[in-house]
Amino acid sequence: MKAVAEMFTMGPGNKDHHPALRCAVGVFVPLITLMLIGRLDLAVFASFGAFTGIYGRNEPHSVRFRSQLRAGGFMLFVILLATLTARLAHSWGIEGVTYSWLLTAATTLVAGGCSVVVAAWRLRPGGSLFHIFAFAAIASIPAQPPLGEALLVAVGTTVLCLAIGMSARVVKSHRTPWKRPPPIRHIPAERRAIWLEGGGYLVAAGLAGTIATLVGERLGFGHTYWAMVAAVVPLVGHSTRHRVSRGIQRIAGTVLGLVLLAGILWLNPAPWVMVLVIAVCQFGAEMFIARQYLVAQVFVTPLALFATLLAAPVDPALLLRDRIVETVIGAAVGAAVVVAPALWHRAGIRRAAS
C-alpha cells in the first residue's frame, strides 16, 4: 500500500522552475537553430549535449560549473564513442542481428562503466541512464552524419548549457559565492559501494538488453536499448520498496506519456511544433523529476520519442509499440535485480535461524 500511495504523492518543491527553465532553453535553442538551417539530422547530438544542463540543478554556481563541466565532457566522450562504434561497424560490414548483439554488449559495458564514473564524481542525478540512452540511440542511427558536424553540434550545445547554468550570476540576488569546490574523496566503504553499484547496472542492463534482443528477433520489436534504460531506473533509491515503486511508476508514466504522444502525433505537427513540444516536455520533466517520478515520465516519454523521430523518422505506431514493450521488459528486469538480493538475504537469515 505504501508503494501505491507513493505513486500519488507529490514531494515538496525546491525552486524547480529554475533548473527546468534552464534545461528547456538549453535544448530548445540548438534544436530550433538546426530546424531553421535544415539540419534536423543532427538533432539527436544536440539533444544529448543538452543533458549537460540536467546536472548540478540546485548547487552553488562554482560547484554546479564543476558538475556540469564534468558531466558535459563525459557525455561528449560517450557521444563520440557511440558514433565511432556505428561507423566502425558499418566499415567492417557488421549489421543486422550481429550488430544488435554487439550494440547490446557495448551498451552493457557503458551502463556499468559510466555508473562508476558518475558515482565517483558524485554527480546528480546519479547512475548511467542518460549515458545508456545516448550511446545506444546514436549508435543505432543507420546513416551517421559527418563526424565533424555531429561533434560541433554536441560541443556547441554543451557550451551553451554551461553558459545557461551560470547565467543567474548576472542577477545579484541569485548569485552565489564563487569559491573552489572541495575535492571529492571516498572512504573504502564508499569505493566498494561504487563498484557494487556499477555491477548492478551491468547486470540489469545486460539482462534486459539480452531479453529484449531475443524477444525483438522473434516478434519484430526494435529499440531494445529502451529496455536497458528502463532496467536501471529501479536501481536508484534508498530502499527496495522505493526502487520497485520507481519501476512501477516508470511503466505507468510511460503508458500515460504514450497516450499524450499519440494525441500530439494525431495532429500531425510541423517540425517546429515538435521542437517546441520537446522544450515543453523537458521543462515538465525537470519540474517533477525530483517530486513525482510518475508525472515526470509522462513528459519524458514524448520527449524521448520526438527526439528519435526528428533524428530518424519512422512509423510512429512502431515507436509507440516498441516503447511500451521494451519499458515493461526493462522495468521487470530492474525490479527483479533489486528484489533478488533482498530475498537472498532473507533466505540466509531463515537458514541461519533454523
Rank of each mutant, 00 (worst) to 15 (best):
S115H: 10
G49F: 08
G199P: 02
V233T: 07
P269Y: 04
G53K: 06
L207S: 02
S140A: 09
G165C: 11
F130I: 09
Y99K: 04
L261V: 04
R124M: 15
Q249E: 03
M7D: 05
T210E: 01
A139L: 04
M1Y: 13
A352D: 14
A50H: 07
P125K: 09
H61D: 15
M287E: 07
K15Q: 15
F306E: 03
G11F: 05
A89F: 05
L260P: 02
G165Q: 08
V236S: 12
E217L: 14
V325R: 00
R346H: 14
G113F: 05
K179Y: 12
V273R: 03
G96T: 06
V153R: 05
W178E: 13
V117D: 05
A205C: 12
L36T: 13
A252C: 10
P177Y: 11
E190G: 11
S91M: 10
M10Y: 05
I264D: 00
L34R: 06
V215G: 03
R124S: 15
R185V: 15
L21I: 14
L81K: 03
S239K: 06
A105E: 04
S62C: 12
S91L: 10
V171E: 12
A340W: 12
P181W: 10
A150S: 14
L31I: 09
R175Y: 11
M35T: 12
L147H: 08
A331R: 01
R175V: 07
R351Q: 15
A105T: 06
A279W: 02
I251F: 09
P269K: 03
P271H: 02
L256K: 01
A332C: 14
